[in-house]
Design a protein around this nucleic acid. Structure first.
Length: 646
RNA sequence: GCCAACGUAGCUCAGCUGGUAGAGCAGCUGAUUCGUAAUCAGCAGGUCCCCGGUUCGAGUCCGGGCGUUGGCUCCA
């Protein structure tokens, strides 16, 4: 081991230190102020505790309370402080473990006789502030497994002992201590509790131990923490923005859809909402012409035998609705479809197929019903009644590659249209319980991976996460607020062609089994609708806006002119209305803005005489009077090109 | 399904420790004819989610159910 090491700092400077120096000591030599604010180090890209000794030459970045990673360290430390506060208030409460999620929240689970109440959270929060004020130093110690077990059992931490057993043999076991509180923890942690500038507890809920519903339910508390009050306020401002964009709220305000207890988790689309829904479908229909799909319409209710044959009855029954007529209630004989694939298999098997017919791409906007447990449904993003832009491609094994390539074009083109910029791609491979031969799987997986590589897009492999019938590629988009949504999916299926004995005749006149590709680009139309609404914050591009143009007459002396303007818009196939109400212009503008109509056309005596309209674009000021012809051309052009600009 | 909170007019919400309901917006009627984000006045509107219990009396307390929300779990 070298007696001195070289540390490369972010500015490129290299400094020499004695081996074994800690991150904190380096920070101290760089500057006192830095040392005061530092909470961790990033050594060769890995976040480490600042008490970590450096033994070799490294690249080091000092992480301070102001860095994003600093926030993580602060929240992680706040977890410990929260657990400490709970134990101070209710001595002897066994603790489980804390964790952070991606949304700047931390959580900690406790074995507690009753659920935590809002008043408890206030008390805990006060206690946390006290601990922060005490400015207790965090200490790290590395211990043997035996010592860790001894310390935890002395402290009555029954759950921690189980957690200890889960730590793999050979891993370093570290304890973090501040004041009286000790936790089994990997770190890193801040230097002192006072570096946690602002904390707020958010909510309590039950949570199963290790996330398994067969285990005992622990009591979980969520909170957040930042280096300063200002950052905490910014966090709540972000939450407020999320609330403002919530598609459930927008759906109500814009009169798009509603829910009714008589059909839980099943959206009712209002006239305005249905226009948007249908515009999405129409867009897909147009693209289907380009990509060579044929649309089909299939039934809603099927003999249950179909689902036994497809395997859904055995594997998916708890998510299915059954629909029995009065004369056959003894047996569950009919079921409402949760998926379209079996219908499409029936269609395929209804005729002989030549390799020349393939690929056969069958699209279906059929309504699907899935029973989702009551606790999991939310708004449009998880519903019991929905449709997909669903299609099944029947092709030869050799055609898989070209089909996948074409699908990539389709998917990226679609996400461009909606300005979903950041897309994550996951390739899920053969699970343990898989159907079919390993060689077929491996071939399919390599085709999928090769297509992704050829496309030059980054993807993550989720080993063993494929469906039992075939590997799949999932597309996760980020909306305008950075939240993740799984929308598109491409799934290869070797099982259904087998179960339905689907065949085609190849060029050698031999009977062969086709491959089936399940794919959806929007995914569920309902979910896409919700995500899209939030992404645009309700400001739909003109081609999707339920009401594209609203004509605002200033007085009823210009009613006729307003009507003629509106008729012209309608002749040009634009969705236009006139606001005839006996209100002042300011009121009508306010309403038009609130309903997020992209184009407001103000008409008064002047416009009526000159044959113009005063154009007002959504969220902008008056653009002034312009010839009617110019304005209608502009609007229909924006609609036709599916522009996001007005 | 599990844990918690919530459910009052079409919407947003008020209603203290039990004494049978209130505001703003929206709606309707009338007046006003108005130039770029709310004109004025009047009227009407509620099985306080449902069922049961405690009580002289329940929107309010208790139990059960339904729904919604946030989590957990699930997501072929």
């Amino acid at each position: 081991m070298a007696s001195t090491i070289h540390v490369t700092l972010p500015d490129g400077s290299i400094r020499e230190f004695p081996a074994g120096i800690t991150v904190l000591a380096v920070a101290e030599q760089v500057g006192q102020r830095l040392a005061h604010e530092t909470v961790a180090g990033k050594v060769n890209g890995r976040l480490v505790d600042l008490r970590t000794p450096l033994e070799d030459d490294v690249e080091l970045r000092i992480v301070t309370t102001r860095d994003p990673e600093g926030g993580e360290v602060i929240r992680h430390s706040a977890e410990h402080v929260m657990a400490d506060a709970v134990k101070r208030l209710w001595p002897g409460t066994p603790i489980d473990a804390g964790r952070q999620d991606h949304s700047e929240k931390f959580q900690y689970d406790f074995r507690f006789a009753r659920p935590f109440q809002p008043e408890d959270l206030e008390r805990i929060e006060d206690e946390m502030r006290r601990i922060v004020k005490e400015d207790l130093p965090f200490e790290r110690t590395e211990v043997s497994r035996r010592d860790a077990a001894k310390i935890m059992s002395e402290r009555g931490e029954a759950i921690k002992l189980i957690r200890l057993e889960d730590i793999p043999e050979g891993d370093t076991i570290s304890l973090y201590r501040h004041g009286e509180f000790v936790d089994l923890c990997r770190g890193p942690h801040v230097q002192r509790t006072s570096q946690i500038g602002a904390v707020k507890l958010l909510e309590a809920s039950g949570a199963y131990f290790k996330g398994d519903e067969r285990n005992e339910m622990l009591q979980r508390i969520y909170g957040t923490a930042f280096a300063s009050k200002k950052e905490l306020d910014a966090y709540f401002a972000r939450l407020e923005e999320i609330r403002r964009r919530d598609h459930r709220r927008l759906g109500k305000e814009l009169d798009l859809f509603s829910f009714h207890p008589e059909a839980p988790a099943s959206p009712f689309f209002h006239p305005r909402g249905a226009i948007v829904y249908n515009a999405l479908i129409e867009h897909m229909r147009e693209r289907y012409l380009h990509y060579g799909y044929q649309e089909v319409i299939t039934p809603q209710i099927f003999d249950v035998e179909l689902w036994k044959r497809s395997g859904h009855y055995d594997n998916y029954r708890e998510n299915m609705f059954f629909a029995d007529a009065f004369d056959d209630v003894q047996e569950r004989s009919s079921s409402i479809k949760p998926m379209n694939c079996p219908s499409h298999c029936l269609l395929y098997s209804g005729a002989a197929h030549s390799y020349r017919d393939l690929p056969l791409r069958l699209a279906d906007f059929g309504r699907l019903h899935r029973y989702e447990r009551s606790g999991v449904v939310t708004g449009l993003t998880r519903v019991r009644s929905f449709a997909q832009d669903d299609a099944h491609i029947f092709c030869t094994p050799e055609q898989i590659g070209s089909e996948i390539r074409s699908l990539f074009d389709f998917i990226f083109e679609t996400y461009d249209l909606f300005a979903f910029a950041e897309i994550e791609i996951y390739l899920s491979t053969r699970p343990e319980k898989a159907m079919g031969e390993v060689a077929v799987w491996e071939h399919a997986e390599s085709v999928l991976a090769a297509s992704l590589e050829e496309r030059g897009v980054a993807f993550t492999v989720n080993a063993g996460d494929g469906a039992f019938y075939g590997p799949k590629i999932d597309f996760v988009v980020h909306d305008a607020l950075g939240r993740e949504w799984q929308l598109a999916t491409i799934q290869l299926d070797f099982m259904l062609p087998e179960r339905f004995e689907l065949t085609y005749i190849d060029s050698e006149n031999a009977e062969r089994r086709p491959v089936m590709i399940h794919r959806a680009i929007f995914g569920s139309l309902e979910r896409f609708y919700g995500v899209m609404l939030e992404h645009f914050a309700g400001d739909l591009p003109p081609w999707l806006a339920p009401e594209q143009v609203r004509v605002l007459p200033i007085t009823d002396a210009v009613t006729d002119y307003a009507e003629s303007v509106c008729s012209l818009m309608k002749e040009r196939r634009l969705r236009a209305e006139v606001d005839h109400r006996n209100e002042k212009l300011g009121y009508k503008i306010r309403e038009g803005e609130a309903m997020k109509v992209p184009y407001l056309l103000v008409v008064g005596e002047r416009e009526a005489q000159e044959g113009t309209v005063s154009l007002r674009l959504r969220h902008r000021r008056d653009e002034g009077a312009q010839p009617l012809g110019t304005v209608v051309d502009r609007i229909s052009n924006a609609v036709r090109t599916r522009s996001r600009e007005l």
